[in-house]
Design a binder for these strands. Structure first.
Lengths: 236, 236
DNA sequence: TTTATATTTTTGTGATCACAATTTATATCA
DNA sequence: TGATATAAATTGTGATCACAAAAATATAAA
């Protein structure tokens, strides 16, 4: 119980409506996304149930769902863990994000009305503020919210679950890696995206989104730098 | 129990190794893919457990996994059902397939060696045979196998689960729709794909894959035809 | 100390049960 | 007959238990 690395879970308010399974799911999802569980660390149902003070049943269900979403990995031993990152996997995830999110953005463009544009602009301003404060955590959350709002403008959207799966797989590594950095310059490509939306220019929008995603990973520009981050995050 | 539409499940051999949950999952997945469960039909844990002659527990887990994969949908009532198709959703799923599978094919291309090419050619011949026999069921299975083998050539592949999710969402509708057709001409684009692979031509490969996917849906060419298939498949 | 073997503990799986919420069926009244 | 209220049945959820498989630990031999 205490020989292994600690699992720090800060669960959200136990909202009375909604099932326990739902709450456990959100708690674990957040913990994974924030890199609070080391990759490779074995997650046992009973231990998590003890930490969250619930019966094993909702944990079982949440683990299965998170595994299906790619956030966790079921090994041959039936053991569940946060997947370890590799350089090639990282590259594949980035390129997949670019391909799918550009597609989603282009498909959403025709549906973006004035109100939604305003909402995106507001999110962009909030990101600027968080940038000024150097609040990396907040930047990351708002950035996700910006992308989600953009893709969701398409009322027939079906790719968001796929995109979120990629975010889940990249999330833990991103957090661990960016926490090792003292500074992290971010060029704001959201303005370019907003301009492209106003111009109804799908290609420009895709360029802006692709650049935004690519520059979000710029901290691991060189293969050597990437490798060093991976080794640090996979110490287990 | 018998007022509702029947659920015809032909489960595979109960392989002794592997968990009951795994077996239930595969059984339900196949049933959904083959359109044997009407969209909108409420799936209850106990009923499925009775049909498959297992306890409710493995059914619960399988349903949750299938829901996370997009094969099933959890309504507000916590009821689970096969999602209903809409014209717009169908279009979005097709376009997403094209975008992601073209990406996956291009990323796999550099890794395809002689042995894998040979395997793809063999699958192509099998498809030709099934075509000659008019065995739609077999064509569909082999076609999936062809695409899967192609994308899997990339050893760092991470998009296959996303692609399979799209297949799961399209599958039931495709089966129901194509069963209404007497004939279904299929132009074989796999030869073009194989030629592109031999030439190491990524763009040509993407064109071939895109055309293959698009022509697989050609039976619903016009909006009116598509609408009529949707209405037929959603009678519930 | 290191390696191999035996024992204990822990773990995932699947079954069963209780209960509140929802659905379905039945009865009541216009 | 048709709408509405009441009762019965069914459902998902979460808890608990038993058990075989796996992991961790202890023991023996080199």
């Amino acid at each position: 119980m205490d020989k292994k690395s600690p699992i720090q879970i800060t669960p959200p308010e136990r909202d009375d409506n909604g099932t326990v399974t739902q709450w456990v799911y959100t708690s674990l999802r957040d913990a994974v996304m924030q890199g609070q569980i080391l990759p490779g660390r074995a997650l046992t149902i009973r231990e998590l149930a003890g930490i969250l003070d619930v019966s094993p049943m909702p944990v079982r269900e949440a683990l299965r769902q998170l595994s299906a979403e790619g956030a966790l990995e079921i090994q041959g031993n039936r053991r569940v863990m946060v997947p370890k990152m590799t350089a090639m996997k990282f590259t594949e995830l980035c390129e997949a994000r670019i391909a799918i999110e550009c597609h989603a953005a282009a498909r959403a463009l025709p549906y973006i009305d004035g109100e939604q544009l305003q909402h995106l602009q507001q999110l962009d301003r909030q990101i600027d503020n968080a940038q000024a404060e150097g609040n990396l955590e907040q930047i990351s959350i708002l950035n996700q919210r910006f992308h989600r709002a953009l893709y969701k403008a398409n009322p027939h959207q079906i790719t968001l679950p796929l995109i979120e799966s990629l975010w889940l797989q990249l999330g833990p590594f991103m957090r661990l890696a960016s926490s090792k950095l003292q500074e992290h310059y971010v060029i704001d490509r959201h303005n370019e995206a907003l301009a492209a939306i106003r111009d109804r220019d799908a290609f420009a929008l895709q360029r802006a989104i692709a650049a935004d995603i690519r520059e979000g990973f710029a901290f691991a520009d060189t293969p050597e730098l990437l490798q060093s981050f991976i080794e640090q995050s996979n110490q287990a």
